[in-house]
């Protein structure tokens, strides 16, 4: 496990995810991927589900990856990486000299469409079989690559092209699926949530390093603010991600062995959710007088979930 103590030392790491990819300016995918692949010195094999990251980092004839990288379909990033892991295990058992001194780790990246909805069956299967890999979900709360359709990760009240706002509708009506808890219920040795940016950089890097070095299936759910479809200015990406943590809309915690929950960051003063929602164009209709009940509903849900996390951490079950 790589020792990550301070940023000055961490910044000496040569980048393994190069620039020149075609992600939008200010896209958080780039920040998360760079931190995860730099958080280890082991050799990496990566598979990426179809999504923003895949179509932008590997446009023929260019590739942004300095590590072994595999393009895979929308639904089977986890199946692909578990196949690669099984192949590596089988080959090293047959031939002892096969990369003897090299430590190879397996990482899969998927957007929230490829993780929450379409790729969930293969992720669940790979977890159940107990392959040794890390799955990182880049959660931008919708199908942003295809024009912003809703996914099961979209929070209540958000405007998307398939849950539009208007006279009758206030946007998305279903609440966000709690995938992190679902993955913990699979009995994963390590499950965590993370955000990109300079304030919580150590949180993300340490979680990635720990997850990669842990044997068995591990999962990180990383919030990735999307400048295009969440409708905010590109330079605000880090601020929005920090606000999501400060308002407890996206709390940072980790779960070990499927039950031991630890909250890794506690906001000093919990901000009202309006601070986070008002910065984004997709929630602007909630600030009309007729929709004020939705805001109250969201606040109530956030408070309930935060209380649940606090109580669960205290109980230690």
């Amino acid at each position: 496990m790589k020792n990550i103590s301070n940023l000055k030392e961490f910044a000496c790491t040569p980048d393994r995810f190069q620039g020149g990819h075609r992600l939008c300016p200010g896209c958080a995918h780039g920040m998360i991927v760079r931190e995860v692949v730099n958080a280890t010195e082991d050799d990496l094999v990566i598979s990426t589900a179809t999504g923003c990251l895949e179509v932008c980092s590997a446009i023929y004839p260019y590739t942004s990856w300095d590590v072994s990288w595999l393009h895979i379909g929308f639904e089977n990033a986890a199946a692909g990486i578990s196949g690669a892991e099984a192949m590596y295990k089988a080959l090293s058992r047959k031939n002892r000299l096969y990369n003897e001194d090299r430590n190879v780790k397996f990482v899969a990246f998927g957007g929230d469409g490829g993780t929450y909805d379409i790729g969930f069956q293969s992720l669940s299967g790979a977890t159940e079989r107990g392959h040794d890999f890390l799955y990182v979900c880049l959660d931008n709360e919708g199908y942003m690559n295809t024009g912003g359709q809703r996914s099961s990760s979209t929070p209540i009240g958000a405007h998307t092209t398939t849950s539009p706002r208007g006279r009758v509708s206030y946007g998305e009506k279903n609440r966000k699926k709690d995938l992190t808890m679902i993955m913990a219920a699979h009995g994963c040795p390590y499950v965590a949530t993370a955000v990109p940016g300079s304030k919580h950089w150590k949180d993300l890097a340490a979680k990635a390093a720990k997850a990669i070095s842990t044997a068995g299936p591990t999962f990180i759910n990383a919030l990735s603010p999307c400048t295009t479809e969440w409708k905010f200015k590109p330079e605000d990406t880090v601020e929005i991600a920090d606000l999501a943590v400060e308002t407890c809309m996206f709390p940072l915690y980790e779960i070990e062995d499927g039950h031991k929950l630890t909250i890794t960051y506690r906001p000093k003063q919990k901000l009202p959710v309006e601070e986070y929602l008002s910065r984004q164009g997709r929630f602007s209709h909630l600030f009309k007088p007729e929709n004020s009940w939705v805001l109250e509903e969201i606040q109530k849900e956030v408070d309930r979930y935060w209380e649940y996390l606090l109580r669960r951490e205290e109980a230690g079950v």
Binding site: K8, F10, A11, G26, C27, M31, S198, W201
Partner: peptide, 22 residues
């Protein structure tokens, strides 16, 4: 002041970094 916040939050890896001994 070499805090490297820009390095860690740049999505395009465009900061050129030199390794020095403090």
């Amino acid at each position: 002041i070499d805090c490297d916040f820009c390095w860690v939050s740049c999505p395009d890896s465009c900061f050129i970094v030199e390794e020095v001994v403090n």
